[in-house]
Amino acid sequence: MQHKQTEQRFANDLNIVSLISVGKHPQSGRERRAEQDGRAVELGMSLNAENLTVLHAGDPQQNALRSYAGMGLNSIRVLEMDPAADAIAPLSSYLKQHSPDIVLAGVRAESGESSGMVPYQLAEQLGWPLVSRIADIISVEGGVAEILQALPRGQRRALKVRLPFVASVDNAAQEARQSAFGPASRAALDLQSTQSTTDVIRDEWSEAPARKRPKRLKKVKATTAAERFKAATAKAQSDGGKVMKNEPAAEQAQAIFDLLLEEGVLR
């Protein structure tokens, strides 16, 4: 596994930016390396470790940034701003200025609003295509990237897209490597100050710890006692399913096969 990263899958001139945010542990609520952002950094490192810029917009004092650096990064670039402010403007002006080939981000942040809009808004402002939920980048040849997109139910779709593009990295991508303390403390934080506007709309919202959602109950609309009794006790009745009893096996198999085709599960 380790030599795979060192051998470098692609040419050195590929410019990649991985966006990182401060994660939050789902149980303890502690700050940590965000799961999907870690995968975005991992994917960036496996593509081109030399020319990878790991970019964060927010508070440079966050300890969680060090856990990204511990993956073996020399430096992390931080656009200094109030963590509650809107990160889109500084990020897009940075990306316009540096014009990388690939921008990688997680699907949704683990803190704040966690709306997952950052990659979409960046793509809109830059006018680049957006690829959602990627699992891997297979190759980049002649300015065209071949991408594996993660679909629900463990499926994958192959896509081709011209550079530059923005991509959000799914949980199906390669897991982030372990973070080591030594490299984490040695890595440099490359600070840039930015102009940020406070998020006025968000100030009007109120936040509270998540309430448990009520479980949906099965509603029984019965008009007679017999129906209510049946709803409470009866087993599921056959609801008009087709039964093939005396047909030859070939015909039965054909019926099954037709249903599978109709449902589109045969690929």
Partner: peptide, 13 residues
């Protein structure tokens, strides 16, 4: 709506 990866509830217009 749920925020912060499903750990908070945000009340908004």
């Amino acid at each position: 709506s749920r925020g912060a990866g499903g750990t908070t509830d945000i009340t908004r217009g």
